[in-house]
C-alpha cells in the first residue's frame, strides 16, 4: 500500500492537532500549578512571618504560664492589644538568658532606645473597626481567634479574619450584627 501525499498530510494533521492541544494544556497547567504552589507558599509564609526577634510564646506562655495580658497590657483597655514596651522585657532579661543571641538583640534595641518593629500576623483592612477591649470584656478567650499561641514557637495566623468568620461568631454569641458596628 502506498500513501498518497494527500493522505499523508491528513495523517499528519490528525496527529498534529491533539499535540498542539496537549502542549497548550500542559503550558497552562504547569503555569497554574506553579502559580498555586507559589501562592500557597506565600500564603503560608504570610500566616507566620519571621520576626525581628524570634520570640518564643512556647516558653513564656506554656512553660512560665504568663497570662496574655502580662505583656499585652492594653488588651482589655484599648482596641489594640499592644506589644510590651521593651522595658518590660528587660525587667526579667537583664538577669535571665542574657547570653542568648535573641536576648542580646533585644538588649541592643533597649540600649540604643530603638523600638522593635514586629511583623503583623493579623491585620485588618482600613474600613474595619475592631476593638480587643470589647472582645476581652465580653469574655471571648484569646485562643478563640488566636489559637493555642502557647504551642506556637512562631506565631501563626489562625482565624481567617474574613467577614463571614466574624459574623458567624457574632451570631452564635448574640453580638451586634449591625454593619456599622464594624464597618467604618
Amino acid at each position: 500500500m502506498t500513501h498518497s501525499p494527500a493522505a499523508e498530510q491528513r495523517v499528519e494533521k490528525t496527529v498534529r492537532k491533539p499535540a498542539i492541544l496537549l502542549a497548550v494544556t500542559a503550558y497552562f497547567g504547569v503555569l497554574l500549578l506553579a502559580l498555586a504552589a507559589l501562592g500557597i507558599s506565600w500564603y503560608r509564609a504570610g500566616l507566620a512571618p519571621d520576626q525581628p526577634i524570634a520570640f518564643p510564646h512556647t516558653i513564656h506562655v506554656s512553660k512560665l504560664n504568663l497570662p496574655c495580658n502580662f505583656c499585652h497590657i492594653f488588651v482589655d483597655r484599648s482596641r489594640h492589644a499592644g506589644a510590651p514596651p521593651l522595658e518590660k522585657c528587660m525587667s526579667c532579661h537583664t538577669a535571665i538568658a542574657t547570653e542568648r543571641e535573641e536576648i542580646r538583640k533585644l538588649a541592643r534595641h533597649y540600649e540604643e532606645k530603638r523600638p522593635v518593629e514586629w511583623n503583623r500576623v493579623y491585620s485588618l483592612p482600613e474600613h474595619v473597626y475592631f476593638s480587643h477591649k470589647r472582645h476581652v470584656k465580653a469574655q471571648v478567650d484569646c485562643s478563640e481567634c488566636h489559637g493555642k499561641v502557647g504551642a506556637m514557637k512562631k506565631v501563626r495566623k489562625v482565624g481567617s479574619l474574613k467577614m463571614g468568620w466574624c459574623v458567624s461568631c457574632h451570631r452564635v454569641r448574640g453580638a451586634s450584627l449591625d454593619c456599622a458596628t464594624c464597618h467604618k
Partner: peptide
C-alpha cells in the same frame, strides 16, 4: 495588603 505591615514595641511604656 493595605494598612501597615508592622507594629512596634515602645522602648518605654507610654
Amino acid at each position: 495588603p493595605k494598612g501597615s505591615k508592622t507594629f512596634i514595641s515602645y522602648v518605654l511604656p507610654p
